[in-house]
């Protein structure tokens, strides 16, 4: 029922949505989230991103998060795909899609999965930052306190 995948190739959001919706007559609600590479972060122009992960742990962590979401809400299909490796500005990093008979459950589960993923799934972003002088440098993205704070609403 769950599709959980981590790969280096570009995400295909249309295909992910089609898999959630195809012949799914029981669920009237589908909530989705797509995170992609912004051109600006923490005051600097971003030229691209490389995503490192912990191969053995990543899928295990994502499966645990999705299982917890299923324990909280009545969900139909769950589809969670995360890209790793190098990627360009505007390319998709993560797709989360959740179907349910109920709109509130679909929204809540989609947001819950993202909030948990952001704080515990072993991914690390390294940005290529363009300085005003034209030089490029690599910079590890700092974790945000706000991501930790978002978790509290699910406690």
């Amino acid at each position: 029922m769950d599709r959980i995948d981590v790969h280096e190739t570009p995400l295909d959001v249309a295909a992910e949505y089609a898999a959630l919706q195809k012949a799914n007559t029981a669920d009237g609600a589908c909530a989705m989230f797509v995170g992609s590479v912004r051109d600006f972060n923490a005051g600097s122009a971003v030229g691209g991103l490389a995503l490192e992960h912990y191969p053995g742990m990543t899928e295990k962590s994502l499966r645990a998060i999705v299982a917890d979401a299923r324990g909280r809400w009545p969900l139909g299909r769950v589809n969670l795909v995360h890209r790793v490796g190098p990627m360009q500005v505007n390319e998709e990093i993560v797709f989360v899609g959740v179907t349910s008979p109920h709109r509130q459950a679909a929204f809540a589960a989609c947001q819950y999965i993202m909030d948990r993923l952001k704080t515990e799934a072993p991914f690390w972003k390294c940005e290529t930052v363009r300085r005003a002088c034209g030089a490029e440098e690599e910079r590890w993205v700092e974790a945000r306190a706000s991501d930790q704070a978002e978790l509290e609403k699910w406690a």
């Binding site: 993923l117 072993p122 991914f123 690390w124 590890w140 974790a143």
Partner: peptide, 12 residues
């Protein structure tokens, strides 16, 4: 056992 040390995660 396998033990991993890492900074706070920043995926998504």
């Amino acid at each position: 056992d396998e033990v991993a040390f890492f900074p706070p995660v920043t995926g998504g």
